[in-house]
């Protein structure tokens, strides 16, 4: 059995993951800026443990339709990473890449989101890999557009094996010129026995 999220471990794990969150999100913002060739500002990511029921509320309530882009992690650590956006942020994000009149949630938007999700999550994991010297790769993306509660049940169930909380990394990217804001949430979900590998590679023992 792997680690548990109790109060003492929580502080250490959150500190480490907050730092990973900062660096990963910075990398993701840089990739995004390069991709769209525009200046991107990033707010300091918010990393926190929240109750199961609070997570969907952060995304507009359990029945609000959101977009989840999900990747499996393979290599020295296994698990998954999920990037979640509400519909407005998803459309804003695609518009930044390819400005269109009458933006809507169509097939084009979906395939563009998969690609953007791939680049953002890839750069996130690349920075984690660089920081830890671990070999980590991401799978092809799987995308779902559905109720926030249903999409977020995926990380909630994983974290549910250890605690009654979910670890969430909230990133806000702002395109400076048009002030279009994209609110995205990363869920880094290592498998239980990968936590020790991950933290150990950073010199943290529990």
């Amino acid at each position: 059995m792997g680690i548990e999220f109790d109060r003492m471990n929580n502080d250490i794990i959150i500190d480490v993951l907050r730092e990973i969150g900062n660096i990963g999100a910075g990398n993701a913002a840089t990739s995004l800026a390069k991709m769209i060739d525009k200046k991107i500002d990033m707010k300091v990511p918010v990393v926190k443990l929240v109750d199961f029921d609070e997570v969907p509320e952060m995304l507009g309530g359990p029945e609000n339709i959101v977009c989840g882009i999900f990747f499996k992690l393979e290599g020295d650590i296994t698990g998954s990473i999920m990037f979640v956006l509400d519909q407005k942020s998803a459309i804003n994000l695609v518009d930044l890449l390819m400005p269109r009149d009458n933006a809507e949630f169509d097939e084009f938007t979906i395939s563009a989101l998969k690609e953007i999700g791939n680049i953002l999550s890839g750069s996130y994991i690349a920075s984690l890999s660089g920081l830890t010297n671990l070999q980590i790769k991401i799978s092809v993306p799987a995308l779902a557009i559905d109720m926030a509660g249903a999409i977020l049940s995926v990380p909630a169930i994983h974290f549910g094996q250890m605690s009654d909380n979910v670890l969430i990394i909230q990133n806000e990217f702002i395109e400076v010129l048009e002030a279009k804001s994209v609110d995205g949430y990363f869920f880094l979900i290592p498998d239980l026995d990968s936590y020790e590998v991950l933290l150990g590679s950073l010199g943290v023992t529990l």
Partner: peptide, 23 residues
Amino acid sequence: VGMADLKVVEYPDALTTLGLGSC
């Protein structure tokens, strides 16, 4: 009824849970 939650009601009340995924 929230996630990881349970409730019991009697007539005439009803119960709901929102956005079930893999749960």
